[in-house]
Each structure stands twice: as structure tokens, then as C-alpha cells.
């Protein structure tokens, strides 16, 4: 029973990672972005919790720690849910996950700090639109308070007025909905648990789709957003991938814009939420069982 509870959160994380691309394609993009980022964080936390539990039992068996904690190491070992090798592996995995998470958190934090600083130094007129001469700059949203929209002049020259409106609305959507926090959260989760790597890529795609749909609403014309995307991609497409994760996403986004607006799929979303809850409940049960285990070991020491 305890073993199942310990294993389930990891299986849930793997399952969530596997179905992440489907969620990004099928769900309305706003819902997909939220579900992918929040779900990945929850799955990562639950996975980390069970690795920590397995490791804590192993640590508790060590005589010096058992003495300090006033419980019986032998009693703990006799009832340990997994053997020592798995315990050691769990402990090592938990330590590696924490280190990887910390590393990514620091790097991402520094990068976001840098964009905020850069925003402060850039002109704030014109709703934060900053035009640069470099054609390789393409167009992107620079997170800050307030954020900036950076666009290459050659790109503006290649677009029609409605297409420019679509581009600006797209970048504004990124800033308004703070997509950089969603992406940071899912990157952190994927660093802690590599089973969630597909969710990181999928969340990136979902956030782009979300901004595309907002641009479609702002211009009132899905096709204009599609042609703006296509033109921008052809103009800046020669350079190496900025994010391997986002490569090849443009044709998918264009296809989605040429199709009807996405319909809500409460069944699919509900099933995934259920999956995540199963993982969370299993982690809670495993925590409970491990506490009981330590209580018994404490009683055995008296």
C-alpha cells in the first residue's frame, strides 16, 4: 500500500508529461497554459515529496540520526517500505532534483531581473513599443514593469497595417497575461523532474497560441494573424533556433488560426485534473504512512 502511494506520484508525473503535447494542441490555449504550468508544478512537488520520504526513512535508519530523533533505527528498517538501495536512489534523486531546481531558479531569476532592468532603461512612450534596426531581432515581449514590445524595423515594413496590429496585440497579450511566469514555473518543474520536460515545451506552445487567439480577437480576423505569423517567420526564419522547444511550432499555429476557434473540452481537462489529484492524494497518503512509521519506531525505542 505504502509502496503504491510512493510510486503513484512519479507515474502521474510521467503520465502528465506524456499527455502534455495533446493538452497544448486540444485545449483552448488559455486553459492549456494554466493547466500545464500549474499541473507541472504540482506533479513536480508530489514527486519530490515521495523521493524525500523514501530518503528520510533511509536517513532515519542511521544510528546517529535515530539516537538524535529518539526512535529505533532497527524498527524503522524492519518496516521500511522500500529496501536500502531504492532508499539511497531516492535520496540521491531528491538531492539532484533540488540542486537542479535551485540552479534553474537562480538562472531564470537573473534573466528576468535583467529584462526588468533593461525595460527600465528603454523608452516607455508608445505603449512600450521599441523599434530596433536589427532584422534578426524579430519581435518579442520583454517582461518588465511595465514590459516592452521589441520589434525589428524590417519586420514592421514587411507587414500590412492589420498584420502590425495583430503582431502588437500578440506581444501585448504575452505581457498582460504574464506568460513569462507560466514558462518559468514549468521550466522549474521540468528541472526538478525531467519526466515533465514535454510539459515545458507544450506550455511554450500553448502560451504562443494564447497570444495568437488574443490577437485574433483584437483584430477580429484570424486569417490576418496567420499571415502576420507566416510573413514574420519567413523574414526571420533563417537564423538558428532561439528555443529548440519552439521550433516547427509556426506551421501548427498558422493551421490553428486558419481553423475554427478552439472549443472548450471539459472532459479532457477534467481527466487531467483528476490524474493530478490522484498523484497529490497518493503523496499525502505516503506522507501519512511515513509519519506513522516514525511514530511506531519512536514507540519501539521507549
Amino acid at each position: 500500500m505504502t509502496r503504491v502511494a510512493l510510486l503513484l506520484p512519479l507515474l502521474v508525473a510521467a503520465g502528465f508529461g506524456l499527455c502534455a503535447p495533446v493538452l497544448a494542441r486540444r485545449l483552448p490555449p488559455r486553459q492549456a497554459t494554466w493547466l500545464l504550468s500549474a499541473g507541472a508544478v504540482l506533479a513536480a512537488l508530489c514527486g519530490l515529496a515521495v523521493l524525500g520520504l523514501v530518503g528520510s526513512v533511509l536517513l532515519g535508519e542511521q544510528p546517529s540520526i535515530a539516537r538524535e530523533g529518539h526512535w529505533s533505527g532497527a524498527a524503522l528498517r524492519a518496516r521500511a517500505p522500500v529496501d536500502a538501495v531504492i532508499g539511497a536512489a531516492g535520496l540521491a534523486a531528491a538531492a539532484a532534483a533540488l540542486a537542479a531546481g535551485l540552479h534553474v531558479a537562480l538562472r531564470r531569476g537573473r534573466a528576468l531581473l535583467a529584462t526588468h532592468r533593461l525595460c527600465r532603461d528603454l523608452p516607455a512612450a508608445a505603449d512600450g513599443l521599441v523599434v530596433v534596426a536589427d532584422p534578426a531581432a524579430g519581435a518579442y515581449a520583454l517582461p518588465g514593469r511595465p514590459g516592452r514590445i521589441v520589434v525589428a524595423q524590417p519586420l514592421l515594413a514587411a507587414l500590412s497595417a492589420p498584420e502590425r496590429r495583430a503582431l502588437l496585440a500578440h506581444e501585448r497579450a504575452h505581457l498582460r497575461h504574464r506568460h513569462h511566469w507560466h514558462l518559468a514555473a514549468v521550466a522549474l518543474a521540468a528541472a526538478v523532474n525531467p519526466l515533465l520536460l514535454p510539459a515545458r515545451r507544450a506550455a511554450g506552445h500553448a502560451a504562443e497560441r494564447w497570444a495568437d487567439e488574443e490577437a485574433a480577437l483584437a483584430t477580429g480576423d484570424r486569417r490576418v494573424v496567420a499571415t502576420a505569423l507566416a510573413r514574420a517567420a519567413l523574414l526571420t526564419g533563417g537564423r538558428p533556433p532561439a528555443l529548440s522547444a519552439a521550433a516547427h511550432a509556426v506551421p501548427l499555429r498558422v493551421a490553428a488560426l486558419l481553423a475554427a476557434p478552439p472549443r472548450p473540452r471539459p472532459g479532457l481537462a477534467g481527466a487531467v485534473v483528476l490524474l493530478l489529484l490522484v498523484g497529490a492524494c497518493a503523496a499525502a497518503v505516503a506522507t501519512e504512512h511515513t509519519e506513522d512509521l516514525f511514530d511506531l519506531a519512536r514507540a519501539a525505542a521507549r
Partner: peptide
């Protein structure tokens, strides 16, 4: 990481993608 916090409008294309978008 810095690139990752910038939401780019579009990213790189394969030759096939380029053909597809040109047709569009």
C-alpha cells in the same frame, strides 16, 4: 535562459515549413 524569458513572435523554420508558409 535569457532567450527563454523573451516570448518571440516566431522561431526558426525548416525548409518544408518555409514552403508551406509561402504557399499560404
Amino acid at each position: 535562459d535569457r532567450r527563454a524569458v523573451l516570448a518571440h513572435f516566431v522561431d526558426s523554420l525548416s525548409a518544408q515549413d518555409e514552403r508551406l508558409l509561402s504557399e499560404l
